[in-house]
Structures are given as C-alpha cells and as structure tokens.
C-alpha cells in the first residue's frame, strides 16, 4: 500500500542513518557537476524543457517568478575587493555559472512537510513527486532551501503547446495541470525505461546506460550521472561507476554535514551541505587563474 510503503521507506532510511549510513536501496542515483567545465550555455536547461514537458509560461508569468525551469543556470558576478573600498572596474574573471536542479536530498526537507505524502523517497534514492497525489499546498516548496520546486499556478496546456507543438510532448511523463507542484526527477522516465529493459533481459543496469537529458546534451561533458550505490554497499554488486569514482576522488561522502577530506583542496562540495539535507548532487569548484 502506497502510504504505508512510503512511510516504511522513510523509516528504513532514518534507521539506516542511525545504524551507520547504509540502507537497502535498489539504486542511489547521483550526479557530479564540474564547474571548471561548465560554460553556462543553457543547453541542459533547454534539453530539460524538451525531455520533461516543461511549460513555457511567457513573459508576464515569468516576471512573477512562475517560470518552470526545472534546471536553471544561475549566473553570479564576482565582487572583487581591491581594498580601500575600491572594486574592479570590470568583471575581469568572467561570470560564475551554476546549473541548479533538484538536489535529490536524502534527508529532504520537502518530504516530511507534505500533508498528503505526495513527495517521498523512493528505493532508488530519488526524491519523488507524485503528481496525481499532490494537492498543491506548496509546503514543500516553502521548505526547499534551494528553491527548486515549481508550482503550476495555471493550466498551461493550451497556451504552452498550441497545435501542433503538443505532438512533441514526451508520452513517458505526464503533463502537469494547475495546482500541482513539480520539479526535476533525474529524468525518472529514462531511469524507468532502462530498469525495465534490464529487468526484461534479467540483468543489472549498466553504468552509463541511464543518462539524464542534461548530462547527455552538455557540450563540455560537465555533468555526470550514475548509480552511486556501489560506494556505500560494496556487497550490492553495483560496480564502481564513473560518478562514484568522481565522488570518491573528490572525497565527498553522502550522509555527512561536513566532509572530512584527506586532501582538503579536492574540489568536490555540495551546496548548503551544512543544512544536513544530504544532497545527491556534488559540484566541483570553478577554477580561475588569478
């Protein structure tokens, strides 16, 4: 039964944390984003629109902050302090780009506040959003420290996909209607397809078999996606995936509020790690010649 099941999953995870960090998940999908390679070109964001039936809301609604970009590329300017209250005349080190999507927190702050359990943790380690269950209380979005949940304030279908644009809609994922919260799912429909295929062939999912739309399109290959379960459960038989290697190399571990790195200069970090939401997305420092 769904509700008992998700409560069970949740308790299992909490219990796992108390007992040393591991819990019996099927997969643990994770990501690594190299800001040294990210050029801020927006390809990932548009790929996400194409893959996930994201509504185009138009200028007026965008102004009100109702844009539905599950994956947004944030751009920050430096404030170089030259001393004596002077700042640089130009942005001489360029911009800082940050692709931001749902961080799929293991201790997600959005999950416990949902009054109808429409958002919960799956045995894949994903932070799920069940659209037909959602009643639109928006508590989850209020509780998300990353502001990565997007609410359907309107019914966008007619305006966003005038015929024949609706023919492009991906049938593997529903078109959300008014009153429903939505967010990045790590392209769960792709995960599902690959898992189904693997199950039909009686084998395990291979590394690199699931690619999210953003990681597949990324012009510089800055985004890596894969199963990280092998890192936490060597017994699971999940081989060391590319993304696991990245996390290990950069000495970032799940389930920690503060990383204790042997090589403190390794670039991996998680945004707002100190909030203890335990995100599954690791960023690698931007590098600049100074």
């Amino acid at each position: 039964m769904s509700l008992s099941n998700l409560i069970d999953d949740w308790s299992r995870y909490r219990k796992g944390r108390e007992e040393g960090g591991f819990h019996d998940y099927e997969h643990m999908w994770g990501m690594s984003i190299d800001l040294n390679k990210c050029i801020g070109c927006n390809a990932c964001s548009v790929a996400c629109y194409a893959e996930n039936n994201l509504a185009v809301v138009g200028k007026e609604k965008f102004e009100k902050g109702q844009g539905m970009h599950w994956l947004r590329v944030e751009r920050y300017w430096d404030e170089p302090d030259l001393g004596e209250e002077r700042t640089s005349e130009f942005q001489q080190h360029g911009a800082s780009f940050l692709p931001m999507m749902c961080q799929q927190c293991n201790a997600a702050t959005c999950e416990p506040v949902c009054p109808v359990a429409a958002t919960y943790h799956t045995p894949d380690g994903l932070n799920a959003q069940v659209y037909n269950r959602c009643i639109g209380s928006r508590y989850c979005s209020n509780n998300c420290p990353f502001r990565l949940r997007y609410f359907n304030f309107w019914s966008y279908y007619e305006d966003s996909w005038p015929a024949p644009l609706q023919m492009q809609l991906n049938p593997d994922i529903s078109v959300r209607d008014m009153g429903v919260m939505e967010k990045c799912t790590f392209c769960v429909q792709r995960i599902r397809t690959v898992k189904d295929t693997a199950r039909m062939e009686d084998r395990k999912v291979r590394d690199g078999e699931v690619q999210t739309a953003c990681s597949q399109t990324c012009p510089t290959g800055a985004i890596e996606f894969g199963d990280m379960l092998g890192m936490y459960d060597p017994e699971s038989g999940v081989a060391e995936t590319r993304v696991t290697k990245m996390w290990r190399k950069h000495q970032v571990e799940l389930g920690k509020t503060k990383q204790n790195k042997q090589t403190p200069d390794m670039r991996g970090y998680r945004v707002f790690e100190f909030l203890n939401t335990d995100p599954c997305v690791m960023y690698l420092d931007r590098v600049r010649e100074v």
């Binding site: 800001l35 920050y76 404030e79 200069d265 931007r286 590098v287």
Partner: peptide
C-alpha cells in the same frame, strides 16, 4: 547578481587545481 557570501559557486586558484 552576486553570491552574497554564500558558497554556491566556489572558486579555487588554478595552481591548487594543478596541485591536486
């Protein structure tokens, strides 16, 4: 427009990157 002191995009010097 800026990170207002938050560690969103963290930047390290290239020589540190080369070292590690």
């Amino acid at each position: 427009e800026t990170q207002v002191g938050r560690k969103l995009v963290s930047t390290i010097p290239a020589d540190v990157y080369e070292r590690t």
